[in-house]
Design a protein around this nucleic acid. Structure first.
Lengths: 340, 340
DNA sequence: CTGAAAGCGCTTACAG
DNA sequence: CTGAAAGCGCTTACAG
């Protein structure tokens, strides 16, 4: 490659100072219109590439926002991400993605990288066990943080997520309304706020209906399609097996339905299955999956919006913004019908 | 936040020069062991954060690798990405992700951002219509590029992908071996090398068996689960409908199977359906999906490896590295059996 | 083994 | 409306 073109290259060529060139390229009204056009033209034809590292070193703004979630291949996060991406794109922020796979050291490495790169902000769905101190470390170093999907107590920042307890109680109530009293819950873990809250919703709905909680009907763990599939065997082995199941997520429900079908049980006919999240696939699945809309796009949009407000100088405050979930009844939970 | 700690803060505190501190923190043997330990200890306790922008400005190495694909929510790319991530992690490269959604301007914006940030390299699955000049622009500005999944003629760089023509011919041959002669192909577009090559494999296998290609049995377009689902209606409306279908991808096949099931047709019983890619879900789907393993993890691993070699100074060369696909026969294509 | 000094490519007061 | 100069926080020869 030829000699690199920088501001001073353009300045020399046109007999101007780098200050003028710098201002012109950023459309400053301080520079005369004609000068500005000459400069821009020269930048274009000479193949000038703006060096953001240099600019960022000077201004301490990088135009980078880090986003860190458990796993972007999970459509639940994918849908949130799309909405964040949309929002940030419009504000010309570059968006750097990372999976932490609930590995604290991986998340911490990403955080350190963002600090080193001088990122402007961070949106994260914190890994299991994230200490509040990690978030304060970011905040203390001028890196505003917004949390999504999960909460960290004492972090001092805002979290956006669905009201998981309420949402799960809606599904369970729906199954009770359909005449079920033997309802299992599959998936999720005590280690995340999401897991705890959804189990709480399950228990509360049962209790409200006077149905005792039965630990053998609570299969913890699964959080993916594959583990939902594997859980089918475990579920089928339960003596005195329930005829209705709520799952921690749509992914778990979809995997479970694959597993049940393979064992010869027909979801939506022989057994009621519900999910959680209302990912895109839920509506076209076979059978179409009853679930709870968890407001992914709203979570993403509002979290990004809140971060942008922080970037504009607003101070941090610890708060929890709950998005109200909505029940979506489909065929997987309605054993009566078979048509439609 | 308190006064920011930088190299000179540590240097002053310990009565050393910034040169020594800089070397010590990077474990240079030039610095005496004891001094090194004192410096590291001070860095730790003072909460020093390494400023990569400053370092990068000086060294013109950023430690950043950009990765740009059509859509990371597509498990096909997701699986490639995991393998790239693994490889880059081990070389302590920060990995910046981007979806281009086949929007050239979005891809170009990402490319510009990477140039401005001084990224060390780029791995991309080029958007439809990517001009070779975009790739040369990167290469000309010291940003080595490696291509995955799709090829750009005249780009001058290496591409890694499965042998799509051969792979697709394997599936079609398999259906012919199962006794089918009326085989539709659903999904994919002429606009990508992948789409063209897979259709070519379909046609070649038909031709080799003396089966004429019938344009009304070729439904172009679908490339997602949702559009596969929608294609079911179109497929069902074909007069003189085929009883076997190969799909552009597993995602299309899985969506199509949902659509066919909803219409009352049983995939794997009433109609044979095959996918392409062998994503994780294929093996647990209902029915389990016959497909072609497309070597996602090998593509990712080798593409990342090739990029790392380029970072080490190897010159670019245009070449196409084909990964040999393998047929995975499962129940969706074997109408004879119903058990298992 | 350690230090003094220059320089990476920008932006930002300040002066005119 | 334009320019001269300092400085962002590192690393890299070079000298000792």
């Amino acid at each position: 490659m030829a000699q690199k073109v920088k501001l001073s290259t353009i300045a020399e060529k046109l007999g101007l100072s780098t200050a003028t060139v710098s201002l012109a390229l950023r459309d400053s009204p301080l520079v005369a219109e004609v000068t500005r056009e000459r400069i821009k033209e020269e930048a274009r034809t000479s193949g000038y590439i703006y060096n953001r590292r240099a600019a960022s070193l000077r201004t301490s703004k990088s135009g980078i926002v880090g986003v860190c979630v458990h796993d972007i291949m999970n459509p639940f996060y994918g849908e949130i991400l799309k909405s964040i991406e949309n929002e940030l794109d419009r504000h010309r922020q570059t968006f750097v993605l990372c999976n932490h796979y609930d590995d604290l050291s991986k998340q911490r490495a990403f955080l350190d990288t963002m600090l080193q790169l001088g990122a402007d902000g961070l949106i994260m769905s914190p890994a299991i066990g994230t200490p509040a101190s990690d978030i304060r470390l970011a905040e203390d170093n001028d890196l505003p943080v917004t949390l999504i999907a999960r909460t960290v107590e004492g972090s001092g920042v805002t979290s956006f997520r669905g009201d998981d307890t309420y949402g799960m109680s809606l599904v369970v109530q729906h199954l009770i309304d359909e005449g079920h009293r033997r309802i299992a819950m599959i998936g999720g873990t005590d280690l995340t706020s999401t897991g705890r809250d959804r189990e709480l919703g399950y228990r509360q709905a049962l209790e409200a209906a006077g149905i005792p909680f039965r630990p053998e009907w609570r299969i913890q763990g699964p959080r993916s399609r594959h583990s939902g599939f594997d859980a089918a065997a475990e579920f089928l082995a339960i003596p005195d097996r329930p005829e209705a199941v709520v799952c921690f997520s749509d992914l778990v429900a979809l995997g479970l339905m694959y597993g049940l079908s393979r064992a010869g049980l027909r979801p939506g006919v022989d057994i009621a299955v519900c999910g959680y999240d209302d990912i895109d696939e839920a509506a076209i699945a076979m059978p179409p999956l009853t679930t709870v809309s968890n407001g992914q796009s709203e979570v993403g949009r509002r979290a990004a919006g809140a971060l942008l407000v922080r970037l504009a100088g607003e101070p941090a405050r610890e708060s929890l913004e709950l998005i109200t979930p909505e029940l979506r009844v489909r065929r997987s939970s309605r054993l009566a019908q078979t048509g439609d």
